[in-house]
Design a protein around this nucleic acid. Sequence first.
DNA 1: TTGAAAGCGCTAACAT
DNA 2: ATGTTAGCGCTTTCAA
Lengths: 336, 336
Amino acid sequence: MDIHFKIVDVAAKAGVSPATVSRVLNDSSKVTPKTRAKVMNIIHELGYQPHAAAKNLRSQKTMIVGVIVPDISNSYFSEIIKGIENIAYSKKYKVVICDTANNEEKELEFLNLLTTRTIDGVIMVAPLTSNETILSIADHGYLIGIVGKKLEHERIPCILTDNVKFSMQVVHHLVERGHREIAFINGSAHAVDSFDRLEGYLKALKEHNIPFKPELIENGNFHESGGYEAILRLFAKKTPFTAVYSANDEMALGVYRACAELGIQIPEQLAVVGVDNNRIGKYLKPSLTTVKQPNYTMGALLVEKLIDMMNEDEYAENRVFTVDSELLIRGSSEGR
Amino acid sequence: MDIHFKIVDVAAKAGVSPATVSRVLNDSSKVTPKTRAKVMNIIHELGYQPHAAAKNLRSQKTMIVGVIVPDISNSYFSEIIKGIENIAYSKKYKVVICDTANNEEKELEFLNLLTTRTIDGVIMVAPLTSNETILSIADHGYLIGIVGKKLEHERIPCILTDNVKFSMQVVHHLVERGHREIAFINGSAHAVDSFDRLEGYLKALKEHNIPFKPELIENGNFHESGGYEAILRLFAKKTPFTAVYSANDEMALGVYRACAELGIQIPEQLAVVGVDNNRIGKYLKPSLTTVKQPNYTMGALLVEKLIDMMNEDEYAENRVFTVDSELLIRGSSEGR
DNA sequence: TTGAAAGCGCTAACAT
DNA sequence: ATGTTAGCGCTTTCAA
């Protein structure tokens, strides 16, 4: 037990040199079928497995990519992960996941896997770490991809949806349904997405000649509790509104809870729209209108690019991808 | 860019030997505060980071534990992961997660990380891999922990809930609410849990002198669709029942969908009980009665044991943990 | 307290 | 087509 065979063991038993065993293992064509068969037999017989650390040290790569997400239990993130994993596996890369629980320190800690070369590259989804930190790590030659925002660095591939655009779509939809007083629960004030979503919200109001009322905007922390507190603050202001646009579905859950407690009917008294197409939205009563982003595809596309960049040394001509979202109209904004 | 410093670089610049730098890095006490300070300065100045592969090769460990789960987007699994991560991090271990998407091959592939010594140990949650395979890997000296079932191997720590017990509780609860015809959507017929849950179901019926009707049992695949199909098969049989016990919440979602389509009222016409305390259950109308397992604790406890076993060489006296579950009674089984 | 040197297991350059 | 050997970057024994 706990006995591990090495290449020299295989070589000795097969009557060949370690180099030949290595060639067999790495599919080098320069080995006769006969030798290959002989070596493979011994490998199976002994149950030989290469020692990753030795291999990594020698080859200076690990064939592992990391993924950092704020919360794996959120389906938005887990779908991105699935996209990443499937493409990565098809390219012989392994994937390791880090759930930061929205903890910036943990994010930094995981980035150590990059700088200690435990992983060959990393994808950060909606990173908390400052742009400067990320850029500086990339400057040191480490490979980082970003989902959800755009960084200005020629070696950082990014993929994102057009926040301005879908934010406008949401407002258009609500206006079409007859709403003119539309509250907005935005994400944390310093999140990049929040700027763009606010911009879309304002732009759409303008197009419809609806005056902007700053008191109809609140910020939340992207969690259920944040949405709950934000909607209560909005109600407290006494500025009437008939619809609320929540920057994600989690916060919309908080809106549902507040409405249930206050006896406010959705959508009759308040229309609600979220973002993310969280799985829970479909099961709510009424089901939640939301913006569906192509999560799986975003993960898949980005990791493909990242792996390409690891292997070619040329810089990417095509570094920033923007993908379209889709508005899923459901019960929470219908039937008025 | 892409320039990495090594221990010799630090040593040269600090005017000491590589050995001393290593001692500083590893907190060896045999180094004067003065030397330590000098070396640390250079380390920071150069931004030196140790090369993981070299370190792993030399020390024959990686300080990484793996976790294999069937589906990270299921909150049952993600909570277990959180428990594992928090304890592991506190003991300086890193955690890498594998989402198998219920794919046995992917599970096996990930176990290669163990046998190639990329990770020091692994926790398998509700593994698909056969017991023989797992036992044989453990026999080779690799460290595996299991959540959700018990394996007979002195080096495999396990943690599980008492399926028989909570299964009986579920049936007791339903009988108390006046139900006598209780259907059961069990998990896949060959899952270990399924045996025990069936046993609990039968035992409880017996205690209440309720005759067992085999036609009231169906098996599902633990997914929403499996529950949907199973309940349709049950309805098709025309054997009446007023309550259904679903082996997990996911499948209960399928029951909800079928009932919505057929106009069957929950709980008035059909009481529903699930297992797992999936987050979605709270948001359903009516909210779902379910069995809550201490997921976080199970992950935390098991990884603690696993890490202990990695470091002590003694075998564990206390290898199998059984934890209690709690029945959360909510709307789907109330108000008849 | 510090340094010199061997060696962890593998691959690739070079030699045969 | 196959073998020999150096070296990837680190830690640790042994010697000073």
